[in-house]
């Protein structure tokens, strides 16, 4: 919006938004600052945000990891899993979204229903049957169950999200391409795909975070400490019967959100830079 804003309005805007941001982010600030407190003082001084005594002990201790593998290993594992499955998700979901949103074919309604239904399946129940099935395929102990299925658009959320975006692209473009002799395949790759970049970026961020945070699959399919992702490793600091190390938990959790945050900061501009005033004629 190109309307001019009076300077005091601008200042008010910043104050309110910044205050809101602070409230939103306070719990996270607590987590980060607490991770630098000596572990015995974290809980007793919970109301005091800034540490009076700073220490790196939580990071050093937490980083040591488990069974001889440091969090460095776990980070790499998480990156590998999240990046590959995200790539697969983007590719497959956009293909299917195009079909469901733009093309007519028999069984489309049923397919759409099935796609939606995948959004409603609780992971905890499919756990056991999926485990049995993957075991049958000899995939237990590998990363396959955590990566391969995502190359087949099994998360309806992303298909639906991209469908929603494609919906915002005027059909005139498709028509124009068709008249020009483009096949549906060319239309998808040359016309649609470039225009849904915001949706792809949004999906990439979501997918990355969801895969990064998923510990249930790792619990079942990763049976070597060397292959553990962060999501699973973080759980091991806390065991009710033998005591928990809150310092290490907070420290490693802080590190764990860094990649997603960085990813978001890098891409958030292109995310919202849509097709605001480009390419839409008439």
């Amino acid at each position: 919006m190109k309307t001019e804003r009076k300077p005091w309005k601008e200042v008010l805007y910043h104050i309110l938004v910044a205050a809101g941001a602070l409230i939103m982010v306070y719990p996270l600030l607590w987590m980060v600052f607490s991770s630098f407190k000596p572990v015995d003082t974290i809980l007793p001084t919970a109301k005091q945000l800034i540490p009076t005594e700073w220490t790196l002990r939580n990071y050093i201790q937490g980083w040591k990891g488990f069974m001889g593998y440091t969090f460095g290993t776990f980070f790499l594992n998480s990156f590998f899993i999240s990046l590959t499955s995200t790539f697969g998700t983007l590719l497959s979901s956009s293909l299917v979204a195009y079909a469901l949103q733009r093309l007519q074919f028999k069984g489309k309604k049923i397919l759409f229903g099935l796609v939606l239904s995948t959004m409603m399946l609780p992971a905890q129940i499919l756990m056991i049957p999926q485990f049995m099935w993957y075991r049958h395929l000899n995939w237990v102990g590998t990363y396959f169950p955590m990566i391969l299925p995502y190359f087949f658009a099994i998360q309806g959320f992303f298909v639906y999200l991209i469908m929603n975006f494609i919906d915002g692209i005027p059909k005139d473009l498709d028509e124009a391409a068709k008249i020009d002799g483009c096949s549906y395949y060319v239309t998808f790759f040359r016309i649609i795909l470039p225009l849904i970049v915001p949706a792809l970026v949004t999906s990439a961020i979501f997918s990355f975070i969801w895969r990064w945070d998923d510990y249930l699959s790792a619990l079942l399919y990763v049976n070597r400490a060397s292959m553990r992702p962060i999501s699973l490793a973080l759980q091991l600091f806390n065991d009710p019967s033998s005591g928990s190390d809150i310092g290490s938990t907070l420290a490693m959790s802080t590190l764990s959100i860094v990649p997603a945050t960085v990813l978001f900061l890098i891409f958030q501009k292109s995310l919202v830079e849509g097709i605001a005033s480009t390419g839409i004629k008439g």
Binding site: F66, M67, M127, I128, F131, M132, R135, V140, L219, L220, N223, R224, A225, Q235, L236, N238, D239, P240, S241
Partner: peptide, 23 residues
């Protein structure tokens, strides 16, 4: 050794699943 340590609740969920398929 191939060790698999978990916290209490994850442990039993994991062991039950492993038992389900004799691993």
């Amino acid at each position: 050794f191939n060790t698999n340590a978990q916290n209490w609740s994850n442990y039993w969920a994991l062991m039950l699943t492993a038992a389900a398929d004799n691993s």
